[in-house]
Simulated assay, not measured.
Amino acid sequence: MGKPSRNSLVAVCAVTLIYLMCVSQAAPPVCERLVHPLDQLAPHHFEGSWALVAGSLNHSPSMEALRRRDSITMYFSNSSEASTLSYTQINRFGDQCQYLRYNISAEGSTFTFDVQSRFSLSMYFLHTSCPDCVVMKWVVKSSRRISTDLYLLSRRREVEQKELEEFRAQLKCYQLPEPVVMDPTKELCPEQPENQPTAAAAPQAEETVAQKT
């Protein structure tokens, strides 16, 4: 057989290049979809209670603190202002419940916690194929740390394995460690505390939040 002509080699290379370009456009990297903040958000979608299913942080002390929690519940509710949400996080430690409440302002795809200038806490919602889940990305900046946190929340206490694997893929995109997966058999705290904290006890809870950053 004769050697292929120069023109035929050029044609083959051109066809190959076009094919590779088409493939790259048709199948973007997985991370591009998994890490892009959602920009079309309906506030009513977040209303109500969510159970933390899994979470990961790139700040080791905070990761250890997450492991010590038996369960975490998060509540979102709309306020009188369209761009503001009310947020309540309830951490359970054994038979004790810790209630943390914040206002969150929304601007585009960025949600900013009002933490009284103690530190900076911004939140973004990321893609998830789970129909009753949300994935939150937190960016925490303070004098003690700068960290990225990812949390998988669901209306259920436990999600399907494929849904958890998708979350693990998101963690890899951010180079975060294997997640802390919450025990779905652990009891959740009630939405409202049985006994309202006294005026003396409230500052102590605020100090606990500050120490975590």
Rank of each mutant, 00 (worst) to 15 (best):
D70G: 05
S71P: 02
S71A: 15
S71D: 04
S71H: 02
S71W: 01
M74P: 01
M74D: 08
Y75E: 15
F76T: 07
F76E: 02
F76A: 14
N78T: 12
N78C: 02
S79G: 05
S79L: 09
S80E: 14
S80C: 09
E81D: 10
A82C: 05
A82E: 13
A82Q: 08
A82V: 11
S83N: 15
S83D: 11
S83C: 07
T84N: 03
L85Y: 07
S86K: 09
Y87H: 12
T88Y: 04
T88K: 09
T88N: 03
Q89E: 15
Q89A: 14
I90H: 02
I90Y: 00
R92Y: 03
R92I: 00
R92L: 12
R92P: 00
F93H: 11
F93E: 12
G94C: 05
G94Y: 08
D95H: 09
Q96C: 11
Q96W: 09
C97M: 06
C97N: 03
Q98T: 07
Q98Y: 10
Q98I: 10
L100T: 09
L100C: 09
L100E: 15
L100H: 08
R101C: 10
R101P: 05
Y102H: 14
A106F: 02
A106I: 15
E107F: 12
S109Y: 01
S109G: 04
S109N: 14
S109Q: 13
S109C: 07
S109R: 03
T110H: 00
T110Y: 00
F111S: 02
F111L: 13
F111P: 01
F113T: 04
F113C: 00
F113Y: 14
D114E: 12
D114G: 04
D114P: 00
V115I: 13
V115H: 01
Q116N: 14
S117H: 12
S117Q: 12
S117L: 08
S117V: 06
S117C: 08
R118Y: 13
R118F: 14
R118D: 10
R118T: 15
R118C: 10
S120P: 00
S120L: 08
S120D: 07
L121C: 12
L121A: 11
L121W: 07
L121E: 02
L121V: 02
S122I: 10
M123Q: 15
M123A: 10
Y124V: 10
Y124K: 09
Y124Q: 13
Y124G: 03
Y124T: 11
L126E: 05
H127A: 13
T128G: 06
T128H: 05
T128E: 03
S129A: 08
S129E: 08
C130P: 00
C130S: 06
D132R: 12
D132H: 06
D132I: 13
D132Q: 13
D132M: 06
C133K: 06
C133T: 04
V134F: 10
V134Q: 10
V134Y: 03
V135Y: 01
M136L: 15
M136S: 14
K137N: 08
K137V: 03
W138Q: 06
W138S: 11
W138N: 05
V139K: 03
V140H: 01
V140E: 05
V140K: 00
